[in-house]
Design a protein around this nucleic acid. Structure first.
Lengths: 202, 202
DNA sequence: GAGAAAAATGAACGGCGTTCATAAATTTCA
DNA sequence: TGAAATTTATGAACGCCGTTCATTTTTCTC
């Protein structure tokens, strides 16, 4: 009977993930410290390395949870509107809303880098699929002639474009621009994009 | 006569920037080490801090040079085609080409973060303008009714979208997608976008 | 060319992720 | 149940990092 051992290990993992999540939300990936996390989780510094291989693996688990929450937020919109244009706009708006409301956790999804030479594990890469899966169906409606691989490529491209707009606006790297409203700019972009896709259908 | 002193200082700065640039090209921002840079530049560790306030300031100078090179590459395309559609596609292609050919230096432009609480100096923020300035003129042709602030916002949005597509594709964060050709996908995106903008003109 | 001013040097500092000898807790089995 | 065996937790210690600073070396002034 090793139940007690397993329960304690799972409990420790959970506390570490929660503490790491709190620290990322508060001060971002760059401010994450193994000593802070273990102090908040109520364990010794070395205990982190009995639960996870290193800090990167712990961050991957935090990012998994963030992706799951983001996936749930997008799912809400995907079951709403039936029109492709309305659905794509709702998804873009939900993506922006999530990025705004969970800024640091959302940034961690894209800022985190593994140690040089080690690849992101496939189980985690696969979780990123939630970001594009809801785009395929409305795109298929807009472009009925395309096959699935083509639609997947379009979906990734559209996601990347929306992500780029949100990411660059939220970290204001450019100056001298009108303080335009990001949401209306983003929805305008999706509108333009859908109009362009409609001209391709013919 | 302080000419010799000034000349040596400028020479030191130049060697440090060059060494930092070489290290970024070879192993990226994450692998940058003050000890490596100073060894390559042929000076003592402490000398770096007589030339620059800290590593961040040195990185900013490397990024300035990268932005100037990128600006020159885009300039080439901007003076080419007269048609807005052709010009925007040429600019997108040039941006992708630069990112591919100077992967690490290009990534450093967007991955670098200042220390918490310190802002990117305005002189460096202003240099990012080269990324969007060439987009305004073709957009103005496509949307003659819009005023300048509106066009600047559109230009930033379009750049962000193109950047997002290039960035996410070059760091392959998604799996299970068709190994589509990035360049044709990007040019297809610009085509769709221009078609959408043309429908807005009326 | 001697004294003043500035700059280069690299050992030392504090902080980081990670490791490891040791201590504590848990499981095994008579 | 209790003592030996095994697993887990501990935090001081390690190696590496950016940065500083007392000291040496170079440059400037007159």
């Amino acid at each position: 009977m090793t139940a007690k051992r397993d329960a304690k290990r799972e409990d420790l993992k959970g506390r570490l993930i929660e503490a790491a999540q709190a620290h990322i939300q508060a001060s971002g990936l760059a401010g994450l410290r193994a000593r802070d996390i273990t102090a908040d989780a109520g364990c010794a510094l070395g205990a982190l390395y009995t639960a996870f291989a290193d800090l990167d693996e712990l961050i991957l688990h935090v990012n998994s949870i963030t992706l799951a929450r983001l996936g749930a937020a997008l799912e809400q919109e995907a079951i709403g509107a039936a029109e492709p244009r309305a659905k794509l706009k709702a998804l873009a708006k939900a993506y922006l809303g999530f990025a705004r409301d969970n800024r640091m956790a959302w940034k961690a999804l894209f800022e985190h880098r593994m140690a040089p030479g080690v690849a992101v594990p496939e189980w985690h890469l696969a979780e990123h699929a939630v970001l594009i899966q809801h785009l395929v169906e409305p795109l298929a409606q807009l472009l009925p002639a395309r096959d699935t691989p083509d639609l997947l490529a379009r979906a990734r491209t559209l996601f990347s474009a929306v992500h780029g707009i949100v990411a660059i606006s939220l970290e204001d790297r450019f100056i001298g621009l009108a303080p335009t409203d990001l949401e209306s700019e983003l929805l305008g972009f999706v509108d333009t994009m859908v109009s362009g896709l409609e001209t391709e259908r013919e």
